[in-house]
Design a protein around this nucleic acid. Structure first.
Lengths: 347, 347
DNA sequence: GACAAAATTTGGAACGTTCCAAATAATCAT
DNA sequence: ATGATTATTTGGAACGTTCCAAATTTTGTC
């Protein structure tokens, strides 16, 4: 077994029909007679035929393949985003190329080019830092829809789906202020990214609205990781006028901040309030459970995929910019009592 | 711009050569004259030609595409595994289909079939629970190499790459026993999986070797997640004769155990020793840093990919079973002092 | 300048599908 | 039965590449 590939012609011979008829059956056409359809299907099973999509694509030039490239799959936010995409892509009968760039622009360029050669009919990308609008020009010129997620690229004429970073950070600050905090830090994140700028912007806005002066020392930028959170809390606690609360760039940073606090014998949620951003799955089961801004990465992945599929099917590539609503989820880490289910709509 | 696809024939015309010559240039053949090569390459750039791998595959039947399917991308162990695979696959000029099954056998069957139709030339799979040896028969019959990772499937005639679960759990127990613990629990994991059986086996072996009787109450099976860890510690602490240490099914469980301990005002690494399994990235930066069995998922991903590529290139599909060595990484959570770098080879 | 040898180039014929236009078969109304 | 409809089936000709065998050009030798 396993010598030659079984082809549509083999099926045709064995079933005593023409290859055209077999093709019709394959695509579930209603033109073909019920009896022949059954016969052909039987032979297909019997000979163990497997459809060759490559050949089909060659003829029809529309491929049931999409690409997804993320900047850091190691980060569970992006892993969940990918899972969300996977879900809808899969049930639409598509299959996805997935690649990780690890923030490398070069890798990103390579994998996008490679995916293009392989004939993707759409691309979802969470761009590496430093990606420029021009980097997707060639795709869009070819009429291949592109959806940018998470990080927006100013000036790119493609669809985007980002979360409402401004409103989210703003709500976090407002929440902390309402609990009486005045020295609220902003911790973590690389300063030269759009997402950072937006979240920091929301933080400043809300501070102003609460009548609290912005203090440059309280905005401590570090890597957007758990280790970065540890570092941030270390730096902030060196200040003469220490903060009593922090809104963090993301949940990973927030977990790091909790770690750093405990290393200093401070109990997060009791001695110091911390709010995260993203609401990754661990946020709920951590101790203390993390108060955070829920952006539902999996949902974002699903929506991005739906948007992409819509564009693929509708032929026209009309850029659409969606900002995804976000909500504050109050849990223990901000010290606001034990009601895990309290939630407030934000945007 | 962007009306018709630019093809090899267009290039040929524009460069004043035949399509065969263009094809030769494309594959970097040494047969073609340096001057013509330059000319052709210039035209290729000028017209913005993009190679159509689908068409090429059709002719040559070998595809520069591999598939990877994992059972839970949300789990950072698997996300890292995927990143490892991605790295070597990418630099070998391949591109990968990646799909998540979420432990669904049906999804797994579907995506594998779909990938097959798309012409993958190899598959790496971390099988969903309940996968049977027969499920990959059709792939291997067609001469497509398959590498099973993480969870072995008894009886499957394909290559596998799993970590040395027995030696790992054994080393963890030995470590705890050497610190004076006698009531050592085994926490987390679904009881009906091969990995669970192996780790529990290692636990029992080491217990016996240390002259400690196995106590059924101390083996508490739960979901292999953070929440499962919280649950496990909850159940164990109900016992009259409480444990003083635990080796956990994996790091996620271990983190949950730490959470659960803290919720009971016990400090992990001080009042109770915990050892994880996997050594995910967070293990190092958590507080307390987690003593764990390092299996280096990214490294496993890389090795799996290398093994697969080797098999793809060598044509022959000779099943190979690799068990990947594992080592104990001693950090704070087991209460063995503060030397983070202490490490011991295990298998 | 003629011949052989080496280097380079080149037309088809694949690869496995889908599509089109046209052929054939079945059904219907008269 | 007969012609008109309608339902089904069917041969090529694509799609964009690679491969083969053969043709052509260049180079080398005497």
């Amino acid at each position: 077994m396993s010598k030659e590939r079984v082809t549509v012609i083999d099926i045709a011979h064995a079933a005593g029909v023409s290859k055209s008829t077999v093709s019709l059956v394959l695509q579930g056409s209603s033109l073909v007679n019920e009896a022949t359809r059954a016969k052909v299907n039987a032979v297909i099973r019997e000979l163990g035929y497997v459809y060759n999509r490559g050949a089909a694509n060659l003829r029809q030039a529309k491929s049931k393949i999409v690409g997804i490239v993320v900047n850091d799959l190691t980060n569970s936010f992006f892993a969940e985003l990918a899972v969300g995409v996977d879900m809808v892509v899969q049930s639409a009968g598509y299959v996805q190329f997935l690649s990780n760039t690890g923030e490398s622009i070069d890798r990103q360029r390579e994998v996008v080019a490679s995916m293009r050669e392989h004939g993707i009919s759409g691309l979802i990308v969470s761009p590496a830092r430093g990606t420029e609008a021009a980097d997707f020009k060639s795709l869009t010129n070819a009429g291949i829809p592109v959806v940018i997620v998470v990080r927006n690229i100013p000036g790119a004429k493609v669809s985007s789906l980002v979360s409402d970073n401004l409103a989210g950070a703003s709500a976090a600050v407002e929440h902390l202020a309402s609990l009486g905090h005045r020295r609220i830090a902003f911790m973590g994140g690389f300063a030269n990214t759009a997402v950072f700028a937006e979240r920091l912007g929301g933080y400043r806005d809300a501070l102003a609205k609460a009548g609290i002066a912005f203090d440059d020392d309280l905005a401590v930028a570090t890597a957007p990781s758990r280790a970065g959170g540890v570092e941030a809390v270390g730096r902030a606690m060196l200040l003469a006028d220490k903060p009593t609360a922090a809104v963090c760039f993301n949940d990973a940073v927030a977990f790091g901040v909790c770690d750093g606090l405990r290393a200093r014998r401070l109990e997060p949620g009791v001695d110091f309030a911390v709010v995260g951003f993203d609401d990754v799955i661990e946020a709920e089961s951590a101790v203390p459970a993390l108060t955070t801004i829920s952006v539902d990465p999996q949902g974002m992945g699903r929506r991005a995929a739906q948007l992409l599929l819509k564009q693929i099917n509708s032929g026209k590539v009309e850029a659409e910019a969606i900002v995804s609503a976000v909500r504050l989820v109050v849990r223990q880490s901000s010290g606001a009592g034990l009601d895990t289910t309290a939630r407030r709509a934000v945007s």
